[in-house]
């Protein structure tokens, strides 16, 4: 008799958290982000694989339409691969996930949101970042063990607009 004994390998699939969040509307992502926490001494180090979604404008599309777009953006076709962090600074990684091509530098540090809840800040006001991109403010909180939910916001004269969301997971 054939006895089935093969087990299922427990693992967190790379990008699976982001794919789960593809179905969230912008407001739902905002609510989710607000509900998350950030460890007091949070500090990111090393290379992180990024998955984009929650892009302002695209997220207004119906779910059946925006989901394939995000899946496409999660594939090799997207030149943005993630972020790298080292000693309170970091940069976006392009074209490969090894961090050899970097563009868009930022400082990192802990901070608070408007309600005083802690988060990790990514401040693009960095000398190596072109002036056009310097109004970008990144914010990140821990979504799950090892997975960060982050968003990019644009600091206007009077307001702060959320541009997009992404997840960051340690690159294998």
């Amino acid at each position: 008799m054939n006895q089935i004994t093969s087990s299922v390998i427990p693992s967190t699939l790379p990008g699976a958290a982001a794919k789960h969040l593809f179905q969230f509307h912008q407001q739902e992502l905002d609510t989710l982000f607000d509900s998350l926490s950030c460890p007091a001494d949070a500090q990111l180090q090393g290379l992180f694989r990024g998955t984009l979604f929650g892009i302002s404008g695209i997220n207004a599309l119906p779910r059946w339409l925006r989901s394939p777009i995000y899946r496409l953006l999660a594939s090799f076709i997207n030149p943005w691969k993630g972020k790298s962090f080292a000693d309170g600074e970091g940069a976006n990684s392009w074209f490969n996930s090894k961090g050899s091509v970097s563009f868009g530098y930022y400082f990192t540090g802990s901070g608070d949101d408007e309600q005083g809840k802690p988060l990790l800040r990514l401040n693009y006001l960095h000398p190596r970042t072109p002036g056009l991109l310097q109004p970008i403010r990144g914010e990140a909180r821990l979504l799950a063990d090892g997975v960060w939910l982050a968003r990019m916001r644009w600091q206007g004269k009077n307001n702060l607009t959320t541009l997009l969301y992404f997840t960051l997971e340690p690159a294998a």
Binding site: S7, T12, A16, A144, V147
Partner: peptide
């Protein structure tokens, strides 16, 4: 299964058996 995939839950090595 889904919660484990996305990183919400860990472990459960005998899940599915």
């Amino acid at each position: 299964f889904h919660s484990r995939d996305v990183g919400g839950l860990k472990g459960m090595q005998t899940l599915g058996l």
